[in-house]
């Protein structure tokens, strides 16, 4: 359970987010929708602890989010994970990055870590990529590997920032289906996106954001119409 209370955020006197109040329940599949510059990514980064909170609070299970994050690893797929071209990293090693949490200095990864990483790859049906170099993957394949790393953390929450970037339309439907499957397995999914039409077929809750919270509802036809109008207005 994530409770966001009176959350506001400013950059140099410009208001990015204003007085956001929302609860995200365990097992939800949340799509955060809004026009460009609506503060979607900022909202995500605040929840992830990647930006410091200025006003308001975020609690995970009644625990202040900074304390929670010290003891727990969240899973996060950034908008863009740009790496040096030809960086010689194998898929399995990138997935194992998700197992670094709680490792003291000089403490090695164990067989259990390796098993969890392999299991994550299997779940996403990309086990065969294990020893491939990340450089040789397509955009969609790379996103799946990042999702495998997210699973390897064993976090209850998976945050995604515009996962549609870098995947073609066919690949995207498959990717959303995977997310849906992860959700069925008990993961709480929180995805920021531009692409409501596709995502709304899979998500359970839509949060509409444009500085303030505009709506928070199930994605039925009625709501979709309202959201479309809202996004058009935003443009």
């Amino acid at each position: 359970m994530i409770e966001v209370r009176n959350l506001s955020y400013q950059i140099k006197e410009k208001t990015i987010l204003e007085n956001i109040n929302v609860d995200i329940r365990e097992g939800d599949f949340v799509a955060i929708i809004g026009p460009n510059g609506a503060g979607k990514s900022t909202f995500l980064k605040l929840m992830l602890g990647l930006l410091p909170i200025q006003t308001g609070s975020i609690h995970y299970y009644q625990q202040d989010h900074t304390d929670y994050l010290k003891e727990n690893q969240l899973a996060y797929l950034p908008q863009k994970e740009a790496f040096t071209p030809n960086f010689p990293l194998k898929v399995i090693d990138l997935v194992l990055m998700g197992r670094m949490f709680g490792k003291k200095l000089f403490r090695r990864l164990t067989k259990k870590d390796m098993d969890i990483a392999i299991e994550s790859l299997k779940l996403l049906k990309i086990e065969q990529f294990k020893d491939k170099l990340i450089n040789n993957l397509s955009g969609g394949e790379f996103q799946r590997v990042l999702l495998a790393r997210a699973l390897a953390t064993e976090s209850k929450y998976i945050f995604l920032d515009e996962p549609e970037a870098g995947i073609d339309t066919v690949g995207l439907a498959g990717f959303y289906e995977l997310l849906s499957h992860m959700n069925e397995l008990g993961k709480t999914i929180i995805a920021v996106s531009h692409d409501l039409d596709k995502l709304s077929e899979y998500c359970k809750i839509v949060i509409c954001l444009n500085k303030t919270l505009h709506c928070h509802a199930k994605p039925d036809a009625n709501i979709k119409q309202i959201i479309h109008e809202f996004i058009e207005e935003g443009k």
């Binding site: 990647l50 996060y76 994970e81 790496f83 194992l96 990055m97 949490f101 790393r149």
Partner: peptide, 18 residues
Amino acid sequence: REIIYTVYHTSIAEFYHV
């Protein structure tokens, strides 16, 4: 491993507690 992850992407590495 820590060096490789740091060289790969410093801020992502930090997020994953490297």
